[in-house]
Design a binder for these strands. Structure first.
Lengths: 242, 242
DNA sequence: CGGAATTTTGAGCGGAGTCAAACCCCGTGG
DNA sequence: CCACGGGGTTTGACTCCGCTCAAAATTCCG
């Protein structure tokens, strides 16, 4: 694994604790197998028994479930630096699918290699465990978002979350950032219909909170957007070190 | 920690891997501090920085979040044998509250003791990590439940989940089981109003799928209930050993 | 027995869904 | 270079699930 691919992962894992030289070396020596994906390509599907996990290097990935009626719910989105399916390290069969939302570049790391560094370096194991706990905190937050808020608030909340997470890995510029989500994707993430996503977007635009055009989002009024989305970012556990 | 308190925890952790004598001993020697709770009592609140986690010995506990508008979303329910707030072992500040739904008996275990056994026994660490991943799978499932299903299906799904989880720890009898949830609790778990929970319950009763009276639930027609709830239990990761 | 919590019922409203069509953008190929 | 096609976005009209606001009925419990 080369330094640039792993850069955002390191940033994330290392945020809390400072790793030793050996720990760093072990991470950098992880064998990693790069793949590129197109939108809709699956990384793993419900029912699979994967033998590797993947690190997102570029692009957006989602965790999705399909109901009997055929509708899709996106349970979470993953950004570069995330390891979305680390759970498969300890849970044999997948209960959810992971698929690329945008063109993506990912790196597969075998479970055996991950187990090896977890056994040798308990602090790395803890750091990886921690990332899965942050993922869980995000799922919980999504339950609240989908369960309690009206559509305006829901969409605002999601935009706030993505802005903070992408900002944390340096992917937000002054004038906005690329957010390669279709309105259908948003609908599946928010549990509302596409038609309603469209109308909700128009409302947020009319209020001057955001602009969202050509898959590029600009937050025009962060305080208002956070207010509307009832956004309280502690669940992202981004900088507990202070 | 005595054998009976820890019984259901052991069952859960040990389901996958068979522990060694030393590992067992380490678990049984964990210092544990018993507490009893009344409905509504908080174990920890959003913003807290706990120094211990808790094992549920008896009763029901929920993870809940309160929105700015004051509404409460329950993100998950926990049954005896669960360690709901194990996340605090690695995430310093709580992003969610845990509170007793029914009278409950819980056992606190200090983080330092947990860290000690995780460092000494990597397989115990993995087993604990695994339980947090199952919790995460349940959160994800709840996102889907709240996001995609209508109220009948949602309630049916929740009843199916609770039936399986309680059955897994031996708390389901032939003629039903105690499920100490008020309709308000159900409303907060499902993201629908109390009034609507009431009407939904009546519909499920009228269809002969369940009876629910005096906080006791009987599943009268499991196949139909599972069908209506679009229930596919793999996400509970209950018996992967087979 | 009395008060509080919980469950149930009724009436009316509105947010969000569905269905359908139009529009737009963009890449492809004739 | 333009016609074609397909995915994505937008609009309109109508419907309905689930919400709110009350109030009544019932159960729980000290």
């Amino acid at each position: 694994m080369n330094g640039s691919d792993i850069h955002s992962l390191l940033r994330k894992l290392d945020a809390e604790r400072r790793f030793t030289r050996d720990e760093m070396a072990a991470l950098l020596e992880l064998p990693i197998q790069i793949a590129t994906l197109q939108p809709g390509d699956h990384i793993v599907r419900e029912g699979d028994r994967p033998t590797k996990s993947c690190l997102i290097i570029e692009g957006l990935v989602c965790a999705s479930k399909t109901t009997a009626r055929g509708s899709r719910q996106i349970a979470s989105l993953y950004v570069p630096g995330d390891i979305p399916d680390l759970q498969s390290l300890h849970l044999e069969v997948m209960d959810i699918s992971f698929e690329a939302i945008s063109p993506a570049k990912i790196g597969f790391i075998s479970h055996s290699a991950l187990r090896r560094i977890c056994d040798s370096f308990p602090r790395l194991a803890s750091a990886l465990w921690r990332t899965t706990l942050v993922d869980a905190a995000i799922y919980r937050d999504w339950v609240t978002n989908v369960g309690q808020r009206d559509s305006d608030s829901r969409l605002a909340h999601l935009f706030c979350e993505l802005t903070m997470r992408l900002d944390a890995v340096g992917l937000v510029q002054e004038d906005g950032y690329d957010l390669p989500l279709t309105q259908t994707d948003l609908a599946d993430a928010l549990g509302i219909s596409v038609v309603h996503v469209n109308r909700t977007l128009q409302r947020l635009r009319r209020l001057g909170l955001i602009s969202f055009k050509n898959k590029r989002l600009t937050v025009l009024d962060w305080p208002q957007l956070a207010e509307m989305g009832d956004f309280e970012p502690s669940y992202l556990h981004l900088s507990e070190r202070v």
